[in-house]
Nucleic acid binder design. Sequence first.
DNA 1: ATTGGCAGTCACACTCCGAGAGTGCCAAGG
DNA 2: CCTTGGCACTCTCGGAGTGTGACTGCCAAT
Lengths: 343, 343
Amino acid sequence: MTRMVSERSLAVLRVIVQDYVASREPVGSKTIVERHAFGVSAATIRNDMAQLEEEELITAPHTSSGRVPTDKGYRVFVDQLTDLRPLSSAQRQAIETFLGEAADLDDVLSRTVRLLSQLTNQVALAQYPSFGSARVRHIELVALGPTRLMTVLITDSGRVDQRMLDVAHGLSDQDLSQLRSVFNTELGGLALADANDKLRGIPDLVAREHAQLVRDIATSLGDQVAVNRKDRLVLAGAANLARTEGDFSGSIFPVLEAIEEQVTLLKLFGEIELADEGVSASIGRENDGFGLGETSVLASGYTASGGSVARLGVLGPTRMDYSNNMVAVRAVARYLTRLLGED
Amino acid sequence: MTRMVSERSLAVLRVIVQDYVASREPVGSKTIVERHAFGVSAATIRNDMAQLEEEELITAPHTSSGRVPTDKGYRVFVDQLTDLRPLSSAQRQAIETFLGEAADLDDVLSRTVRLLSQLTNQVALAQYPSFGSARVRHIELVALGPTRLMTVLITDSGRVDQRMLDVAHGLSDQDLSQLRSVFNTELGGLALADANDKLRGIPDLVAREHAQLVRDIATSLGDQVAVNRKDRLVLAGAANLARTEGDFSGSIFPVLEAIEEQVTLLKLFGEIELADEGVSASIGRENDGFGLGETSVLASGYTASGGSVARLGVLGPTRMDYSNNMVAVRAVARYLTRLLGED
DNA sequence: ATTGGCAGTCACACTCCGAGAGTGCCAAGG
DNA sequence: CCTTGGCACTCTCGGAGTGTGACTGCCAAT
């Protein structure tokens, strides 16, 4: 395709996006020359708009009303967005004080998303860092009942994972503490992946009568090791969707649904490729495959202690304030990296 | 107040509630005689409706349209609702298979609310059982970094609680394992309340140089003991709110907000007094104090292993199918009691 | 107590306009 | 070649007017 769009046309696109996002109303040529000092007449703007429409960057809801950016238009707008001005110092302050008080990882992430959703007025999401390189710190077996057992896995990265288990026949406290020490001796200090391998050999180490039981426990722990790799999501600010309701053609139902169905969201979130040091966006119909064709997702990466990188971002209607929101996501991601990386 | 409402009037109220809930449209006298075999004429129904209106159990949106139940009307309807017919066996089956596979407490509750939200098409909530009578099983200290420590508390009820902690100066692995054994020796097997008391004495038991550190750890563990008492909430089905959007006069924003702000919800949930073996309701304006004047909450109790009772229920617009939903809540609560009580 | 009848009241859906906003195109001017 | 003013055209949106239909409330008769 020939590049038909002049420099000024792009500027026009920019103000169309900005004004439309701000006012939720289609913006016309006259409004543009009034509100922005372009130094040309409305007719000229109209010619530029014709170009933009030719390129499918903007579109007119009806024959004769102002223009609205298309998804493609938002995309170009976002890609052009290089000069993200920094956050106000007040906001910066807010981040520090709010996140600084966090007690543990859960708390940090929960605070992070609440903060980010407030800064952006959108739904904020954060992925738990993966702990592939974490090591087994301690394994605990707890008898919950005669045939019910709980296994708890603690890793040195600070992650704790528990699981319940039905066992065929009862275990004495002695049996239990023996098993406990076997598991801890054998697996303590191992990386999760290695622990998983070694688990298979353990049933041979114990008394015959417990072999099956130990196999069950091993399976359970194996699951936990795997789960530790798997991603989890925290989010906040779902209420903001109700506020931006008008931006969704139908109901916000599919969006709320996707939010509950974290699997979908995780996949979508994971497919956004991260620009290093920056914030990436997936816009409107680009998310159609996930049933979220009217929403945009902004994502940035943050680095946690193990060097593992996870994602952080916001989700909202396609008509969102990309500029502000990207700044906020970037700032929070950076602070999070600083907070979690210091070990 | 004189009891002005005849027996038949109450029957009329009943069908008004049922029809209105089903159709979302005000129901008139003619419709009633057509759809229900009352054996009287429309005019008679109108007289009854006049009674009901007198008692403020129903109201007319405009001068001349059908009637709609008031909050008070719903209340009377619910209180009259004695004959809850049981769930279909298919649904009963679904409960068993779906909840039977659960792995741990988190999983049980998460499945419970998902199930309940599907059965009712509303938002489902469940309170974690409180573990006031639980005992300390194990305490784990994990060094996350030179000045960062994590404390993990495992109770014999299967609850695991972790917390992060900044410490002034580093600890060797030896120090750590010494502290670990002190805590476990001193506190292991104690009920949480007793453990909390004993915690204060522990700093005296260790080397002087660690006294401050130990105090910090003790504080952290004390918090965890307290948190263990405090309530937590799981919920699912928020997307259903979008489907019932028309039942909220304004936006669903305040409801979504309350759902995120679990504190409010917990308080509201806790104030509903439970009829034993039954399901209780808090209807419409009765929840006005919580900003939820257009929603109703159904609640039932379930009993977990320690004999501790927690709550389970659904939340939705005042115009909901109380009959079905109460049946579902009751059935799930009973099954949950059976599942968690067996030890 | 119940009933049929009848008058009265609104909400709602429909249509019909006029105003306003904005466009596309064109011919003239830099 | 870009820009500009002008002009005709299109289409949305709001308001006014209107008729229909669904109710109710009341009353007199049973």
